[in-house]
Amino acid sequence: MAETPEPTEKTTTAGAFDIRTIIGGLMGIYGVILLVMGLWFTDASEIDRADGVNLNTRVSIGLLVFAAVMLAWVFLRPLRVPVEQDDSERPE
């Protein structure tokens, strides 16, 4: 698996496995689902229950903003990981 350690470590972006991508992605999906629910599928009784507030819509906006921030963070500061990591070249 491991090659001999090289003087300069090769790195690549973590891509989809970056935990920030996963957090942002999941929150984004939930945001979209709740937005659709809030706009078209939340009936009057549900809005009444929460004292006249459409919770789905409000929360969906929060989730989408949060997801955008997370994904922007990934985009601006991508995580670099060593391509082939071996115990002898751990970054410590």
């Binding site: 996963i22 999941l26 989730l63």
Partner: peptide
């Protein structure tokens, strides 16, 4: 490990609106 970090955000996303809606009520 992924679950622990993810669950934190899901819980906040659920409980924060619950608290605010409750207070409103």
């Amino acid at each position: 490990i992924y679950n622990e970090v993810l669950q934190f955000f899901v819980i906040v996303a659920a409980l924060l609106p619950l608290t605010l809606a409750g207070l409103h009520k």
